[in-house]
Structures are given as structure tokens and as C-alpha cells.
Design a protein around this nucleic acid. Structure first.
Lengths: 221, 221
DNA sequence: GTTTGTGAAGGCTTTCACAGCC
DNA sequence: GGCTGTGAAAGCCTTCACAAAC
């Protein structure tokens, strides 16, 4: 298995391609779990998982020549390539700020924190919550301890699960504590200085998209 | 307040525009909560919430002329327009299938189910979970009762929070039960017939995007 | 025969920039 | 003066289609 193109200029890779690599990884893992095949073609991947084969090939080709013409992609190799591209071959530690409903659920939801991601802190500014156990066994800690916790536990990613009014302030505190990557579940946009990557995920947006489709699609005929 | 363009051909509206309308609604609501202003310009919205003013104007203009030149948009009117466009002026009932960690959290997470969305059923196929109370007070019911529950409770939206291996089968059962809109949180693509709108939201994709950025961005200089 | 990797084409989305209106 | 609504331009992304490789 050849190394992937480490010289690739990742600033030319679009976020859409990166998101799809993550999807491809999930697909490859499902096929490996099946255990019955060693190789897959882009067509077969596309057919099974509702994707576009040309796009799969193009996305992968940005990073190297992973396939064999006439054959396809070796599943185990492909998994390893994508793992390396996405930087999943080492642990990434998270701190969740906002020990409400969503924050406590995420801290032990395997679809969120499995694999190379590990939640090592759940913080809240509400004194009545501090010391509460979370489902994963961590105790809720005081949000004011964020800087020391980030430093001592080697945290790279901050996750915001506070109400929207607190999100900007929490993000600012994360940046001040040295975090450069933030995942914001609060339903509001937050601003951060250059060099800090903030990704906002608003779950209600998806429901409202569904509502739009229900409202603006003629009933099936 | 004039009615919005009800004649607009919604099939020409992109999903990206719809998703942004939902974001704009959240921004407008935050400004209304502030209580101190009645009107906002696209520039001011863009500045406050990290958006693009031309895009805001273009997105809104697909549906009507909501603004006043030289002034901007009236906040209360704009909220109402977006609510109508997205179909949020009536209740949409959801059923969640998969009473695990994420499913039970979502059923009373206000950022997910507040406003016009109401969870009226939480189902699971595991007999040991049936009858368990969820944080919102609903009891977990048997997934085999999906068809009758959808019919009797007037459910429009199915939410899949099962492990990936079960997702396709649950989606098929939702379609068979008459649902035409599905929100899939299982980390796998699912297929559905034409006329059924399935939206997949894979939370780990976002973490893996962050990992890519951490791995492929030079430390700040 | 099959399938990849990829230039070129096509389609879509964003941004610009300004006429028109307040 | 200010701001919207919108064609046109620019930029981006996806899809096509085929030479090259097996």
C-alpha cells in the first residue's frame, strides 16, 4: 500500500469533498463489517450507498491513486488511506461546554464520540449542575476552569451545547483557552478570529427543511 | 404586510437557500428577543451573524419583495414571511424510531423539537426498552406498531436514531407506514423511492471535518 | 472485458455592482 | 444619503466521457 499524496495542497480541497470522505469511510467500514468482500469499485459503492461513482473517484484522486484499473479499491487499504487523510489515526480530545440535554447525550453517544474522538470534559456555568454525573461517568465541572482543563488534558476540540445567548461568549472563552477548532450546536452563528475553524450544526435547520418540502411538494399522485 | 409570492416554483429553490432561510429565521428571532430594533438591513444582518448580504437579499427575493429600499426589512414581518415559506405556521408531528441515547435526548431537546415540531412517539424494537419513560414523559413503544401510530397520531416526519444496520429497514417501514419525509441520524445512507424525501445527518462527519482541519492546517503563526 | 483517473463540459451557487426606489 | 432587488460575471462543483491501465 503506497502512501497517499502528502504533498497535496489541502487548501484547494473543498469542505464538501472532506465531508464526503467521511461518508465514504462509513461505507467502507460497513462493507468491511460484512466481511465477504475485499475490493469494491466506485460503481458498486455508488450503487449500494446512493452516491455518484465519478464523484467518489474524483474525491479520492485528489489524494492519490488508491485504485487499480479494472479492479477497484482494496477495502482495507482504502479505509487506511481515508483514516490518514482525515487525521483519524490519532486521538482527538473534546470538551463539551453546556451540560444540558444535548451535551450530556453527546458525551456518550457512540455515533459522535467513538473511534478517535474522546470526550474528556463536560462543563457548565450553572453551579447547580456542577458535580452531576454524566452518562459516560464524567462529572460536570465548572466552566470557569476551561483554560486549565484544556491545557492539562490536551484538548483540541471545543463543543458548544449551550443556549444560543451564551454561545458567542463560550466560543470566545474557548479561543482564549487556546482551542482552534470549535463545533457549535447552539442555534446561532458565532464569530471567531482567523485561524479558528468554527463549524455550526443547527439540528432544527434540518427539520425546517423537511417542513419546507412537506409544505411545498404536491401530495404524491 | 403583503403576502409572499405563493406562485413561486419551489422546485427551482435550492436546498441551500432553504437551509439559509432557516438560519435567517433564527437570526431574526434573536434580534426580536433583543427587543430594541424593528428593522434590519441585509448588511446589518450579515455583519452581526457572519453572513453575506447579497445572498440574504437574493434568497429572500425568490419569495417576494419583503424589504423597503433605503430602510431594510421589518423584523416582525420578515419572521412571519419565513415562517410561512418554511411551513412553520402549523404543527408537524414526529415519530422517533430508536430509543437509544440520541433518540431519547432529541425527544425533549428544545433546539430540535420546539416551535412547530412535536414528538408524539418514541419507538424501539428491543422488548426490554418498551415501556421505559423518556425524559419528555412519553413511554417507549413497540416499533412494530409504527403503522397504526403514524395513522392515529397524524405523524408526518420519521426520525431514525437506530444503529446503522437497522436504518434501511426502519426507513422502509416508515415509507410503508405512509411517511414521506424522513430524517436519518444513523451513520449510513438509506435509499427510498421517488417522492420520499430523506435527509441524512451524520454527526460524526462534522467531527471528522474538524480532524481534517486540525491535521492539515499549519499551526497558527 | 472492466475500472480508474482526469480533462472538459455543463450546471449550479455566490458575489459583484448598479439601476431603481425610498 | 441609504438599501433593495437583480442581471451579469465569476467562481465552484458535479457529471460526462474516454484514454490509460489492468
Amino acid at each position: 500500500m503506497a502512501a497517499y499524496k502528502r504533498h497535496v495542497d489541502t487548501s484547494t480541497i473543498s469542505d464538501l469533498t472532506v465531508a464526503r470522505l467521511s461518508v465514504y469511510l462509513r461505507c467502507v467500514e460497513r462493507l468491511l463489517d460484512g466481511g465477504d468482500i475485499e475490493t469494491v469499485s466506485s460503481q458498486e459503492l455508488a450503487r449500494r450507498f446512493n452516491l455518484n461513482s465519478a464523484q467518489i473517484r474524483k474525491d479520492l484522486a485528489y489524494f492519490g491513486e488508491f485504485g487499480v484499473r479494472g479492479v477497484g479499491y482494496n477495502l482495507r487499504d482504502l479505509r487506511q488511506y481515508i483514516v490518514e487523510i482525515l487525521g483519524l489515526n490519532r486521538e482527538h480530545r473534546l470538551v463539551i461546554v453546556g451540560a444540558g440535554n444535548l451535551g450530556t447525550a453527546l458525551c456518550h453517544y457512540s455515533g459522535f464520540t467513538g473511534g478517535s474522538f474522546l470526550v474528556v470534559g463536560v462543563l457548565d456555568s450553572d453551579p447547580s449542575r456542577i458535580g452531576d454525573p454524566t452518562p459516560s461517568g464524567l462529572l460536570v465541572e465548572d466552566a470557569s476552569r476551561l483554560p486549565e482543563i484544556v491545557r492539562q488534558r490536551g484538548i483540541e476540540i471545543g463543543v458548544i451545547t449551550t443556549p444560543p445567548a451564551a454561545a458567542q461568549s463560550v466560543c470566545d472563552q474557548m479561543v482564549a483557552a487556546g482551542l482552534r477548532t470549535v463545533l457549535n450546536f447552539a442555534p446561532t452563528r458565532v464569530k471567531a478570529p482567523d485561524g479558528v475553524y468554527v463549524k455550526t450544526v443547527d439540528l432544527k435547520v434540518h427539520l425546517e427543511e423537511l417542513s419546507f418540502h412537506i409544505t411545498n411538494t404536491a401530495p404524491s399522485r
